[in-house]
Design a protein around this nucleic acid. Structure first.
Lengths: 256, 256
DNA sequence: ACAATAGTGTCTGTCAGACACTATGCC
DNA sequence: GGCATAGTGTCTGACAGACACTATTGT
Protein backbone atom coordinates (compact mmCIF):
# COMPACT_ATOMS: atom_id res chain seq x y z
CA UNK A 1 0.00 0.00 0.00
CA UNK A 2 3.01 2.24 0.32
CA UNK A 3 3.32 1.98 -3.43
CA UNK A 4 -0.30 3.00 -3.95
CA UNK A 5 0.20 6.12 -1.89
CA UNK A 6 3.43 7.04 -3.60
CA UNK A 7 1.74 6.50 -6.95
CA UNK A 8 -1.05 8.89 -6.00
CA UNK A 9 1.48 11.53 -5.04
CA UNK A 10 3.31 10.97 -8.29
CA UNK A 11 0.15 11.36 -10.36
CA UNK A 12 -0.80 14.55 -8.59
CA UNK A 13 2.37 16.29 -9.67
CA UNK A 14 2.83 14.62 -13.05
CA UNK A 15 3.51 17.05 -15.86
CA UNK A 16 1.72 15.67 -18.89
CA UNK A 17 3.61 17.94 -21.25
CA UNK A 18 6.96 16.20 -20.86
CA UNK A 19 6.32 14.52 -24.17
CA UNK A 20 4.95 16.53 -27.03
CA UNK A 21 1.35 15.72 -27.85
CA UNK A 22 -0.09 15.08 -31.27
CA UNK A 23 -3.40 15.60 -33.01
CA UNK A 24 -5.44 12.45 -33.43
CA UNK A 25 -8.37 12.01 -35.79
CA UNK A 26 -10.70 9.23 -36.78
CA UNK A 27 -11.52 8.68 -40.45
CA UNK A 28 -14.50 6.64 -41.51
CA UNK A 29 -14.68 4.24 -44.36
CA UNK A 30 -18.38 3.60 -44.89
CA UNK A 31 -19.18 0.85 -47.36
CA UNK A 32 -22.55 -0.14 -48.72
CA UNK A 33 -23.99 -1.94 -51.71
CA UNK A 34 -25.59 -0.03 -54.57
CA UNK A 35 -28.18 -1.33 -56.99
CA UNK A 36 -27.35 -0.59 -60.59
CA UNK A 37 -30.67 -0.81 -62.42
CA UNK A 38 -30.77 -2.46 -65.81
CA UNK A 39 -33.13 -1.43 -68.59
CA UNK A 40 -34.32 -4.98 -69.29
CA UNK A 41 -37.49 -5.55 -67.27
CA UNK A 42 -36.57 -9.21 -66.72
CA UNK A 43 -33.05 -8.63 -65.49
CA UNK A 44 -32.12 -8.14 -61.86
CA UNK A 45 -30.18 -5.07 -60.90
CA UNK A 46 -26.44 -5.38 -60.57
CA UNK A 47 -24.97 -4.93 -57.12
CA UNK A 48 -21.81 -2.89 -56.67
CA UNK A 49 -19.85 -1.93 -53.59
CA UNK A 50 -19.80 1.76 -52.85
CA UNK A 51 -18.03 4.07 -50.46
CA UNK A 52 -19.19 7.31 -48.90
CA UNK A 53 -16.99 10.33 -49.58
CA UNK A 54 -17.35 13.92 -48.45
CA UNK A 55 -16.44 16.90 -50.55
CA UNK A 56 -14.16 19.10 -48.47
CA UNK A 57 -15.40 22.64 -48.19
CA UNK A 58 -12.30 24.00 -46.53
CA UNK A 59 -8.54 23.86 -46.69
CA UNK A 60 -6.50 21.77 -46.89
CA UNK A 61 -7.58 19.83 -49.98
CA UNK A 62 -10.53 22.17 -50.48
CA UNK A 63 -12.97 20.76 -53.07
CA UNK A 64 -11.31 17.36 -52.95
CA UNK A 65 -13.20 14.21 -52.03
CA UNK A 66 -12.23 12.65 -48.74
CA UNK A 67 -13.35 10.25 -46.05
CA UNK A 68 -15.52 11.79 -43.36
CA UNK A 69 -13.58 12.22 -40.15
CA UNK A 70 -13.13 14.19 -36.99
CA UNK A 71 -10.71 15.00 -34.22
CA UNK A 72 -10.59 12.77 -31.18
CA UNK A 73 -11.40 14.83 -28.13
CA UNK A 74 -9.64 14.08 -24.83
CA UNK A 75 -12.78 12.70 -23.23
CA UNK A 76 -13.77 10.36 -26.03
CA UNK A 77 -12.65 6.84 -26.85
CA UNK A 78 -11.68 6.25 -30.45
CA UNK A 79 -14.83 4.31 -31.08
CA UNK A 80 -16.94 7.09 -29.61
CA UNK A 81 -15.32 9.51 -31.98
CA UNK A 82 -16.06 7.19 -34.88
CA UNK A 83 -19.70 6.94 -33.82
CA UNK A 84 -19.97 10.69 -33.40
CA UNK A 85 -18.64 11.22 -36.92
CA UNK A 86 -21.21 8.74 -38.22
CA UNK A 87 -23.99 10.59 -36.42
CA UNK A 88 -22.86 14.03 -37.48
CA UNK A 89 -21.96 13.34 -41.07
CA UNK A 90 -24.08 10.38 -42.09
CA UNK A 91 -26.90 10.79 -39.58
CA UNK A 92 -26.91 7.19 -38.65
CA UNK A 93 -26.38 5.19 -35.52
CA UNK A 94 -25.65 1.59 -34.67
CA UNK A 95 -23.72 0.46 -37.68
CA UNK A 96 -21.33 -2.41 -37.86
CA UNK A 97 -18.05 -0.75 -37.01
CA UNK A 98 -14.52 -2.04 -36.74
CA UNK A 99 -11.15 -0.45 -36.32
CA UNK A 100 -9.18 -0.76 -39.53
CA UNK A 101 -5.69 0.61 -39.17
CA UNK A 102 -3.82 3.59 -37.81
CA UNK A 103 -2.01 5.91 -40.17
CA UNK A 104 0.91 7.87 -38.87
CA UNK A 105 3.08 9.14 -41.70
CA UNK A 106 4.67 12.40 -40.61
CA UNK A 107 3.59 14.44 -43.63
CA UNK A 108 0.18 12.93 -44.24
CA UNK A 109 -1.54 16.18 -43.36
CA UNK A 110 -0.02 19.46 -44.62
CA UNK A 111 -1.30 21.40 -41.58
CA UNK A 112 0.52 19.48 -38.89
CA UNK A 113 1.30 16.07 -37.56
CA UNK A 114 -1.93 14.11 -37.37
CA UNK A 115 -2.35 10.47 -36.46
CA UNK A 116 -5.48 9.01 -37.98
CA UNK A 117 -7.25 5.93 -36.70
CA UNK A 118 -9.36 4.59 -39.54
CA UNK A 119 -12.60 2.76 -38.84
CA UNK A 120 -14.62 0.75 -41.31
CA UNK A 121 -18.41 0.77 -41.18
CA UNK A 122 -20.95 -1.24 -43.15
CA UNK A 123 -24.47 -0.01 -43.93
CA UNK A 124 -27.45 -1.38 -45.68
CA UNK A 125 -28.52 1.50 -47.90
CA UNK A 126 -32.20 1.34 -47.00
CA UNK A 127 -31.34 1.83 -43.32
CA UNK A 128 -30.21 5.35 -44.15
CA UNK A 129 -32.39 8.46 -44.21
CA UNK A 130 -33.76 8.96 -47.72
CA UNK A 131 -31.67 12.06 -48.41
CA UNK A 132 -28.52 10.05 -47.74
CA UNK A 133 -29.60 7.14 -49.86
CA UNK A 134 -29.96 9.61 -52.75
CA UNK A 135 -27.01 11.84 -51.93
CA UNK A 136 -24.20 12.44 -54.36
CA UNK A 137 -21.67 11.23 -51.80
CA UNK A 138 -21.68 7.61 -52.91
CA UNK A 139 -18.97 6.33 -55.19
CA UNK A 140 -19.39 2.96 -56.85
CA UNK A 141 -16.31 0.79 -56.85
CA UNK A 142 -15.31 -1.00 -60.03
CA UNK A 143 -12.34 -3.29 -60.41
CA UNK A 144 -10.89 -3.95 -63.83
CA UNK A 145 -7.54 -5.68 -64.16
CA UNK A 146 -5.61 -4.25 -61.25
CA UNK A 147 -7.32 -0.91 -61.35
CA UNK A 148 -9.72 0.30 -58.70
CA UNK A 149 -12.11 2.89 -60.09
CA UNK A 150 -14.41 5.05 -57.99
CA UNK A 151 -17.30 6.53 -59.95
CA UNK A 152 -19.80 8.96 -58.50
CA UNK A 153 -23.20 7.33 -58.44
CA UNK A 154 -25.07 10.51 -59.39
CA UNK A 155 -22.53 11.98 -61.79
CA UNK A 156 -20.67 9.31 -63.72
CA UNK A 157 -18.29 11.98 -65.00
CA UNK A 158 -16.66 12.21 -61.58
CA UNK A 159 -14.36 9.23 -61.59
CA UNK A 160 -11.07 8.38 -59.88
CA UNK A 161 -8.46 5.70 -60.47
CA UNK A 162 -7.16 4.81 -57.02
CA UNK A 163 -3.85 3.68 -58.46
CA UNK A 164 -3.14 7.21 -59.67
CA UNK A 165 -1.38 9.38 -57.10
CA UNK A 166 -3.31 11.91 -55.02
CA UNK A 167 -6.76 11.79 -56.52
CA UNK A 168 -8.34 11.99 -53.08
CA UNK A 169 -7.48 14.15 -50.06
CA UNK A 170 -4.66 13.12 -47.68
CA UNK A 171 -3.81 9.39 -47.77
CA UNK A 172 -7.47 8.48 -48.04
CA UNK A 173 -7.13 6.39 -51.16
CA UNK A 174 -4.65 4.20 -49.30
CA UNK A 175 -7.18 3.80 -46.50
CA UNK A 176 -9.85 2.75 -49.00
CA UNK A 177 -7.54 0.16 -50.54
CA UNK A 178 -6.69 -1.33 -47.17
CA UNK A 179 -10.38 -1.39 -46.24
CA UNK A 180 -11.29 -3.21 -49.44
CA UNK A 181 -8.64 -5.81 -48.72
CA UNK A 182 -9.80 -6.26 -45.14
CA UNK A 183 -13.38 -6.71 -46.29
CA UNK A 184 -12.35 -9.19 -48.95
CA UNK A 185 -10.47 -11.28 -46.41
CA UNK A 186 -13.01 -11.14 -43.63
CA UNK A 187 -16.08 -11.85 -45.71
CA UNK A 188 -14.81 -15.38 -46.24
CA UNK A 189 -14.56 -16.35 -42.60
CA UNK A 190 -17.01 -14.03 -40.84
CA UNK A 191 -20.68 -13.13 -41.19
CA UNK A 192 -19.96 -9.56 -42.05
CA UNK A 193 -21.81 -9.74 -45.38
CA UNK A 194 -25.14 -9.73 -43.58
CA UNK A 195 -24.56 -6.11 -42.58
CA UNK A 196 -24.75 -5.20 -46.24
CA UNK A 197 -28.15 -6.72 -47.03
CA UNK A 198 -31.68 -5.97 -45.75
CA UNK A 199 -33.24 -8.15 -43.05
CA UNK A 200 -34.84 -10.30 -45.72
CA UNK A 201 -32.92 -11.12 -48.87
CA UNK A 202 -32.75 -13.71 -51.60
CA UNK A 203 -29.76 -15.98 -51.81
CA UNK A 204 -28.93 -14.52 -55.20
CA UNK A 205 -28.78 -11.05 -53.67
CA UNK A 206 -26.51 -12.34 -50.96
CA UNK A 207 -24.36 -14.07 -53.52
CA UNK A 208 -24.10 -10.81 -55.48
CA UNK A 209 -22.83 -9.07 -52.35
CA UNK A 210 -20.14 -11.71 -51.92
CA UNK A 211 -19.25 -11.41 -55.58
CA UNK A 212 -18.92 -7.67 -55.54
CA UNK A 213 -16.78 -7.73 -52.40
CA UNK A 214 -14.60 -10.56 -53.65
CA UNK A 215 -14.46 -9.20 -57.18
CA UNK A 216 -15.21 -12.54 -58.79
CA UNK A 217 -18.12 -14.70 -59.84
CA UNK A 218 -19.19 -17.62 -57.68
CA UNK A 219 -21.04 -20.77 -58.63
CA UNK A 220 -24.58 -20.81 -57.29
CA UNK A 221 -24.75 -24.43 -56.06
CA UNK A 222 -21.49 -24.14 -54.16
CA UNK A 223 -22.46 -20.78 -52.71
CA UNK A 224 -25.82 -22.08 -51.54
CA UNK A 225 -24.21 -25.07 -49.92
CA UNK A 226 -21.70 -22.95 -48.04
CA UNK A 227 -24.19 -20.34 -46.84
CA UNK A 228 -27.00 -22.72 -45.93
CA UNK A 229 -26.01 -23.02 -42.28
CA UNK A 230 -26.05 -19.25 -41.79
CA UNK A 231 -29.54 -18.42 -43.07
CA UNK A 232 -33.15 -19.30 -42.32
CA UNK A 233 -35.88 -19.40 -44.99
CA UNK A 234 -38.75 -17.03 -44.14
CA UNK A 235 -41.33 -18.56 -46.44
CA UNK A 236 -41.85 -15.18 -48.14
CA UNK A 237 -41.30 -14.97 -51.87
CA UNK A 238 -40.35 -12.19 -54.26
CA UNK A 239 -42.67 -11.45 -57.14
CA UNK A 240 -43.11 -9.21 -60.15
CA UNK A 241 -39.68 -9.78 -61.59
CA UNK A 242 -40.51 -11.37 -64.92
CA UNK A 243 -39.06 -14.70 -63.88
CA UNK A 244 -39.40 -17.37 -61.26
CA UNK A 245 -39.94 -15.98 -57.75
CA UNK A 246 -37.28 -16.64 -55.17
CA UNK A 247 -37.52 -17.25 -51.50
CA UNK A 248 -36.48 -14.65 -48.96
CA UNK A 249 -34.09 -15.64 -46.21
CA UNK A 250 -32.90 -13.99 -43.05
CA UNK A 251 -29.67 -14.19 -41.10
CA UNK A 252 -29.38 -16.95 -38.55
CA UNK A 253 -27.32 -15.63 -35.69
CA UNK A 254 -25.45 -18.61 -34.40
CA UNK A 255 -24.52 -16.88 -31.16
CA UNK A 256 -28.05 -16.78 -29.87
CA UNK B 1 -3.81 27.06 -59.32
CA UNK B 2 -5.76 29.70 -57.52
CA UNK B 3 -6.74 27.02 -55.03
CA UNK B 4 -3.13 25.99 -54.51
CA UNK B 5 -2.18 29.57 -53.68
CA UNK B 6 -5.09 30.03 -51.32
CA UNK B 7 -4.22 26.72 -49.66
CA UNK B 8 -0.66 27.88 -49.07
CA UNK B 9 -1.90 31.04 -47.45
CA UNK B 10 -4.29 29.04 -45.32
CA UNK B 11 -1.57 26.69 -44.12
CA UNK B 12 0.72 29.56 -43.26
CA UNK B 13 -1.73 30.94 -40.76
CA UNK B 14 -3.26 27.70 -39.54
CA UNK B 15 -3.49 27.40 -35.79
CA UNK B 16 -2.80 23.76 -34.96
CA UNK B 17 -4.08 24.15 -31.42
CA UNK B 18 -7.74 24.54 -32.40
CA UNK B 19 -8.25 20.92 -31.41
CA UNK B 20 -6.73 19.63 -28.23
CA UNK B 21 -3.82 17.29 -28.79
CA UNK B 22 -3.24 13.94 -27.14
CA UNK B 23 -0.27 11.85 -26.10
CA UNK B 24 0.45 8.93 -28.37
CA UNK B 25 2.63 5.95 -27.52
CA UNK B 26 3.64 2.73 -29.19
CA UNK B 27 3.63 -0.50 -27.20
CA UNK B 28 5.49 -3.56 -28.37
CA UNK B 29 4.36 -7.10 -28.16
CA UNK B 30 7.47 -9.17 -28.81
CA UNK B 31 6.86 -12.88 -29.21
CA UNK B 32 9.40 -15.65 -29.50
CA UNK B 33 9.62 -19.38 -28.96
CA UNK B 34 11.30 -20.84 -25.86
CA UNK B 35 12.82 -24.26 -25.55
CA UNK B 36 11.73 -26.11 -22.44
CA UNK B 37 14.41 -28.72 -21.86
CA UNK B 38 13.35 -32.18 -20.77
CA UNK B 39 15.39 -34.38 -18.48
CA UNK B 40 15.16 -37.43 -20.72
CA UNK B 41 18.23 -37.41 -22.96
CA UNK B 42 16.25 -38.91 -25.82
CA UNK B 43 13.38 -36.48 -25.75
CA UNK B 44 13.27 -33.27 -27.74
CA UNK B 45 12.70 -30.02 -25.88
CA UNK B 46 9.19 -28.65 -25.75
CA UNK B 47 8.56 -25.41 -27.54
CA UNK B 48 6.44 -22.73 -25.92
CA UNK B 49 5.49 -19.26 -27.02
CA UNK B 50 6.85 -16.46 -24.90
CA UNK B 51 6.41 -12.74 -24.63
CA UNK B 52 8.88 -10.06 -23.55
CA UNK B 53 7.79 -7.96 -20.58
CA UNK B 54 9.55 -5.10 -18.86
CA UNK B 55 9.42 -4.46 -15.15
CA UNK B 56 8.43 -0.82 -14.66
CA UNK B 57 10.88 1.08 -12.52
CA UNK B 58 8.75 4.19 -12.22
CA UNK B 59 5.20 5.30 -11.67
CA UNK B 60 2.55 4.63 -12.70
CA UNK B 61 2.38 0.88 -12.15
CA UNK B 62 5.82 0.89 -10.56
CA UNK B 63 7.16 -2.67 -10.16
CA UNK B 64 4.46 -4.07 -12.42
CA UNK B 65 5.26 -6.00 -15.57
CA UNK B 66 4.35 -4.24 -18.79
CA UNK B 67 4.96 -4.19 -22.51
CA UNK B 68 7.95 -2.10 -23.59
CA UNK B 69 6.80 1.13 -25.18
CA UNK B 70 7.59 4.73 -25.86
CA UNK B 71 6.06 8.05 -26.82
CA UNK B 72 5.66 8.91 -30.48
CA UNK B 73 7.60 12.04 -31.22
CA UNK B 74 6.23 14.55 -33.74
CA UNK B 75 8.90 13.77 -36.32
CA UNK B 76 8.56 10.00 -36.21
CA UNK B 77 6.17 7.69 -37.99
CA UNK B 78 4.49 5.09 -35.79
CA UNK B 79 6.63 2.34 -37.23
CA UNK B 80 9.77 4.36 -36.59
CA UNK B 81 8.76 4.70 -32.97
CA UNK B 82 8.19 0.97 -32.74
CA UNK B 83 11.61 0.29 -34.22
CA UNK B 84 13.24 2.78 -31.87
CA UNK B 85 11.66 1.06 -28.88
CA UNK B 86 12.95 -2.29 -30.15
CA UNK B 87 16.45 -0.85 -30.49
CA UNK B 88 16.46 0.89 -27.14
CA UNK B 89 14.80 -1.79 -25.03
CA UNK B 90 15.55 -5.05 -26.75
CA UNK B 91 18.71 -4.04 -28.59
CA UNK B 92 17.61 -5.56 -31.80
CA UNK B 93 16.93 -4.37 -35.30
CA UNK B 94 15.11 -5.68 -38.34
CA UNK B 95 12.46 -7.83 -36.78
CA UNK B 96 9.22 -8.85 -38.34
CA UNK B 97 6.90 -6.08 -37.25
CA UNK B 98 3.23 -5.42 -37.84
CA UNK B 99 0.74 -2.97 -36.47
CA UNK B 100 -1.69 -4.75 -34.21
CA UNK B 101 -4.39 -2.44 -32.93
CA UNK B 102 -4.85 1.00 -31.44
CA UNK B 103 -6.08 1.36 -27.89
CA UNK B 104 -7.90 4.52 -26.94
CA UNK B 105 -9.88 4.04 -23.76
CA UNK B 106 -10.03 7.34 -21.92
CA UNK B 107 -8.79 6.05 -18.57
CA UNK B 108 -6.28 3.49 -19.78
CA UNK B 109 -3.42 5.50 -18.32
CA UNK B 110 -3.88 7.14 -14.91
CA UNK B 111 -1.54 10.01 -15.78
CA UNK B 112 -3.47 11.44 -18.71
CA UNK B 113 -5.17 10.56 -21.93
CA UNK B 114 -2.84 8.36 -23.96
CA UNK B 115 -3.58 6.66 -27.24
CA UNK B 116 -1.44 3.59 -27.73
CA UNK B 117 -0.70 2.02 -31.07
CA UNK B 118 0.35 -1.57 -30.41
CA UNK B 119 2.81 -3.33 -32.69
CA UNK B 120 3.57 -7.02 -32.73
CA UNK B 121 7.10 -8.26 -33.37
CA UNK B 122 8.42 -11.78 -33.84
CA UNK B 123 11.98 -12.83 -32.95
CA UNK B 124 13.96 -15.96 -33.19
CA UNK B 125 15.60 -16.18 -29.77
CA UNK B 126 19.09 -16.94 -31.05
CA UNK B 127 19.08 -13.71 -33.09
CA UNK B 128 19.13 -11.77 -29.84
CA UNK B 129 22.21 -10.70 -27.93
CA UNK B 130 23.09 -13.37 -25.36
CA UNK B 131 22.11 -11.27 -22.37
CA UNK B 132 18.63 -10.89 -23.75
CA UNK B 133 18.27 -14.55 -24.54
CA UNK B 134 19.00 -15.22 -20.89
CA UNK B 135 17.19 -12.24 -19.41
CA UNK B 136 14.40 -12.62 -16.91
CA UNK B 137 12.07 -10.65 -19.16
CA UNK B 138 10.62 -13.63 -20.98
CA UNK B 139 7.32 -15.07 -19.92
CA UNK B 140 6.24 -18.44 -21.24
CA UNK B 141 2.65 -18.68 -22.35
CA UNK B 142 0.58 -21.67 -21.30
CA UNK B 143 -3.02 -22.27 -22.21
CA UNK B 144 -5.15 -24.58 -20.14
CA UNK B 145 -8.89 -24.67 -20.66
CA UNK B 146 -9.70 -21.05 -21.35
CA UNK B 147 -6.97 -19.71 -19.14
CA UNK B 148 -3.90 -17.95 -20.43
CA UNK B 149 -1.02 -18.21 -17.99
CA UNK B 150 2.21 -16.23 -18.22
CA UNK B 151 5.07 -17.75 -16.27
CA UNK B 152 8.46 -16.13 -15.91
CA UNK B 153 11.04 -18.27 -17.61
CA UNK B 154 13.72 -17.67 -14.97
CA UNK B 155 11.51 -17.60 -11.91
CA UNK B 156 8.54 -19.91 -12.20
CA UNK B 157 7.05 -18.37 -9.08
CA UNK B 158 6.22 -15.23 -11.01
CA UNK B 159 3.04 -16.21 -12.76
CA UNK B 160 -0.03 -14.36 -14.06
CA UNK B 161 -3.46 -15.48 -15.17
CA UNK B 162 -4.41 -13.11 -17.97
CA UNK B 163 -8.09 -13.63 -17.29
CA UNK B 164 -7.71 -12.12 -13.85
CA UNK B 165 -8.16 -8.34 -13.78
CA UNK B 166 -5.16 -6.01 -13.69
CA UNK B 167 -2.25 -8.39 -13.28
CA UNK B 168 -0.17 -6.36 -15.71
CA UNK B 169 0.26 -2.61 -16.10
CA UNK B 170 -2.30 -0.54 -18.06
CA UNK B 171 -4.41 -2.57 -20.51
CA UNK B 172 -1.40 -4.61 -21.53
CA UNK B 173 -2.95 -7.99 -20.85
CA UNK B 174 -5.71 -7.09 -23.29
CA UNK B 175 -3.05 -6.25 -25.87
CA UNK B 176 -1.36 -9.61 -25.33
CA UNK B 177 -4.64 -11.46 -25.77
CA UNK B 178 -5.40 -9.65 -29.00
CA UNK B 179 -1.88 -10.34 -30.25
CA UNK B 180 -2.17 -14.04 -29.50
CA UNK B 181 -5.43 -14.16 -31.44
CA UNK B 182 -3.92 -12.31 -34.37
CA UNK B 183 -0.96 -14.66 -34.47
CA UNK B 184 -3.21 -17.68 -34.27
CA UNK B 185 -5.27 -16.48 -37.22
CA UNK B 186 -2.42 -15.31 -39.39
CA UNK B 187 -0.17 -18.31 -38.94
CA UNK B 188 -2.66 -20.38 -40.92
CA UNK B 189 -2.64 -18.28 -44.07
CA UNK B 190 0.71 -16.49 -43.97
CA UNK B 191 4.36 -17.49 -43.66
CA UNK B 192 4.78 -15.68 -40.39
CA UNK B 193 5.90 -18.83 -38.52
CA UNK B 194 9.27 -18.70 -40.24
CA UNK B 195 10.16 -15.58 -38.25
CA UNK B 196 10.05 -17.73 -35.13
CA UNK B 197 12.53 -20.42 -36.22
CA UNK B 198 16.26 -20.30 -37.07
CA UNK B 199 17.38 -20.25 -40.69
CA UNK B 200 17.68 -24.01 -40.65
CA UNK B 201 15.11 -26.08 -38.82
CA UNK B 202 13.62 -29.54 -38.78
CA UNK B 203 10.03 -30.03 -39.81
CA UNK B 204 9.22 -31.26 -36.33
CA UNK B 205 10.54 -28.01 -34.86
CA UNK B 206 8.44 -26.05 -37.30
CA UNK B 207 5.43 -28.16 -36.44
CA UNK B 208 6.00 -27.49 -32.74
CA UNK B 209 5.95 -23.77 -33.44
CA UNK B 210 2.61 -24.10 -35.22
CA UNK B 211 1.31 -26.21 -32.38
CA UNK B 212 2.31 -23.79 -29.67
CA UNK B 213 0.83 -20.85 -31.55
CA UNK B 214 -2.38 -22.66 -32.39
CA UNK B 215 -2.59 -24.30 -28.99
CA UNK B 216 -3.35 -27.74 -30.38
CA UNK B 217 -1.58 -30.83 -31.67
CA UNK B 218 -1.24 -31.43 -35.41
CA UNK B 219 -0.80 -34.68 -37.29
CA UNK B 220 2.67 -34.99 -38.75
CA UNK B 221 1.76 -36.35 -42.22
CA UNK B 222 -0.84 -33.66 -42.81
CA UNK B 223 1.48 -30.94 -41.54
CA UNK B 224 4.30 -32.08 -43.78
CA UNK B 225 2.02 -32.14 -46.80
CA UNK B 226 0.76 -28.64 -46.15
CA UNK B 227 4.17 -27.12 -45.48
CA UNK B 228 6.08 -28.89 -48.24
CA UNK B 229 5.65 -26.11 -50.78
CA UNK B 230 7.10 -23.51 -48.42
CA UNK B 231 10.39 -25.15 -47.49
CA UNK B 232 13.54 -26.45 -49.17
CA UNK B 233 15.60 -29.36 -47.83
CA UNK B 234 19.19 -28.34 -47.14
CA UNK B 235 20.66 -31.84 -47.06
CA UNK B 236 22.05 -31.19 -43.57
CA UNK B 237 21.00 -33.52 -40.80
CA UNK B 238 20.70 -33.20 -37.04
CA UNK B 239 22.63 -35.64 -34.87
CA UNK B 240 23.33 -36.60 -31.29
CA UNK B 241 19.73 -36.76 -30.20
CA UNK B 242 19.41 -40.39 -29.20
CA UNK B 243 17.10 -41.17 -32.08
CA UNK B 244 16.92 -41.03 -35.84
CA UNK B 245 18.45 -37.83 -37.29
CA UNK B 246 16.17 -35.47 -39.15
CA UNK B 247 16.78 -33.30 -42.13
CA UNK B 248 17.14 -29.54 -41.81
CA UNK B 249 15.03 -27.34 -44.04
CA UNK B 250 15.03 -23.65 -44.83
CA UNK B 251 12.30 -21.25 -45.82
CA UNK B 252 11.49 -20.99 -49.49
CA UNK B 253 10.50 -17.43 -50.18
CA UNK B 254 7.95 -17.69 -52.92
CA UNK B 255 8.24 -14.00 -53.80
CA UNK B 256 11.76 -14.26 -55.11
C1' DA C 1 -43.48 -19.21 -76.30
C1' DC C 2 -39.47 -17.44 -74.23
C1' DA C 3 -36.17 -14.82 -71.52
C1' DA C 4 -34.29 -14.82 -67.22
C1' DT C 5 -33.70 -16.38 -62.94
C1' DA C 6 -34.52 -20.09 -58.98
C1' DG C 7 -33.17 -24.06 -57.27
C1' DT C 8 -31.45 -29.10 -57.14
C1' DG C 9 -28.82 -33.40 -58.27
C1' DT C 10 -24.63 -35.41 -59.04
C1' DC C 11 -19.94 -36.36 -60.75
C1' DT C 12 -15.13 -35.55 -59.91
C1' DG C 13 -10.81 -34.30 -58.09
C1' DT C 14 -8.52 -32.51 -54.19
C1' DC C 15 -7.20 -32.60 -49.72
C1' DA C 16 -7.30 -33.02 -44.57
C1' DG C 17 -7.82 -36.47 -40.85
C1' DA C 18 -6.47 -40.81 -39.45
C1' DC C 19 -3.64 -44.60 -38.84
C1' DA C 20 -0.27 -47.98 -39.98
C1' DC C 21 4.02 -48.82 -41.24
C1' DT C 22 9.18 -48.53 -41.99
C1' DA C 23 13.73 -46.29 -40.89
C1' DT C 24 17.49 -44.82 -37.96
C1' DG C 25 20.74 -43.28 -34.22
C1' DC C 26 22.18 -43.39 -29.44
C1' DC C 27 22.44 -45.23 -24.89
C1' DG D 1 17.70 -54.24 -27.99
C1' DG D 2 14.66 -50.74 -27.48
C1' DC D 3 13.30 -45.89 -26.92
C1' DA D 4 12.18 -41.90 -29.27
C1' DT D 5 11.77 -39.65 -33.20
C1' DA D 6 11.85 -39.27 -38.65
C1' DG D 7 9.50 -39.95 -42.48
C1' DT D 8 6.16 -42.27 -45.94
C1' DG D 9 2.03 -44.77 -47.89
C1' DT D 10 -2.68 -45.04 -48.22
C1' DC D 11 -7.61 -45.22 -46.98
C1' DT D 12 -11.62 -42.42 -46.18
C1' DG D 13 -14.91 -38.86 -45.90
C1' DA D 14 -15.88 -34.00 -46.62
C1' DC D 15 -16.31 -30.71 -49.71
C1' DA D 16 -15.55 -27.25 -53.64
C1' DG D 17 -15.72 -26.76 -58.72
C1' DA D 18 -18.28 -27.87 -62.54
C1' DC D 19 -22.17 -28.79 -65.22
C1' DA D 20 -26.66 -30.46 -66.34
C1' DC D 21 -31.13 -30.36 -65.40
C1' DT D 22 -35.90 -28.94 -63.84
C1' DA D 23 -39.13 -25.21 -62.14
C1' DT D 24 -41.54 -20.89 -62.39
C1' DT D 25 -42.78 -16.41 -63.44
C1' DG D 26 -44.24 -11.85 -66.50
C1' DT D 27 -44.69 -10.15 -70.98
Amino acid sequence: MFIKKAEKAFLKTYDSSVFEKLSVTTDLLVFSISDLKTNNYRKLSNKVMSVFLANRDQFPFKDCWSLPGGFVSPKETLEETAKRVLREKIHVDDLYLEQLYTFGEVERDPRMRIISVAYMALVERSDLPYSLQQSDNWFNIFREDNKIILRNEKDSGVEFDLNMPSVLAFDHQEIIKIGLERLKNKIEYTDLAFHLVPNEFTLTELQNVYESVLGKKLLAPAFRRSIKSKVIPTGNMTSGNGHRPSELYCYKNNEA
